[in-house]
């Protein structure tokens, strides 16, 4: 069967916009997952990634500093300052510690929604 898998997202309400500090991140609990949510106020942008830093498997990215490198938004893990692109999740520190998951974010009426892919459709 030839199948082009179009990723489907389940959107869930994560928190209100006021819960997230300007130019910083918070950690969101979704089922048994941890998701880091960032409000890049300076750019008027929202990003969500996995909370775990793949370098030492620490649940810490939401506590990291965000910023840009050559205009590309990134987050630095507080543990060893490995940086990851907030756009595509790749490691930007030059060493290969693997990429992180990124998730789409929507803001409606002061509520922040995060989209998580429906794994079922991928698995068929």
């Amino acid at each position: 069967m030839s199948a082009t898998i179009t990723e489907q997202y389940t959107w869930f309400a994560a928190c209100s916009t006021a819960d997230v500090p300007s130019n910083g991140g918070v950690c969101i609990k979704y089922k048994d997952q941890q998701i880091a949510l960032f409000h890049f106020t300076r750019r008027n942008e929202w990003y969500a990634t996995q909370n775990m830093c793949p370098h030492r498997m620490q649940m810490a990215l939401s506590r990291g500093l965000i910023g840009t490198a050559g205009g590309e938004p990134k987050v630095a893990c507080p543990f060893h300052k490995k940086t990851f692109s907030l756009v595509d999740g790749r490691c930007m520190s030059g060493d290969d510690c693997g990429a992180i998951e990124t998730y789409p974010v929507r803001v409606e009426n002061g509520k922040v929604f995060i989209g998580v892919p429906d794994r079922e459709t991928e698995l068929f």
């Binding site: 890049f40 300076r42 750019r43 500093l65 910023g67 840009t68 205009g71 938004p73 630095a76 940086t83």
Partner: peptide
């Protein structure tokens, strides 16, 4: 630009 983990 928008800063980074060095200058912040």
């Amino acid at each position: 630009g928008d800063g980074c983990e060095v200058c912040k």
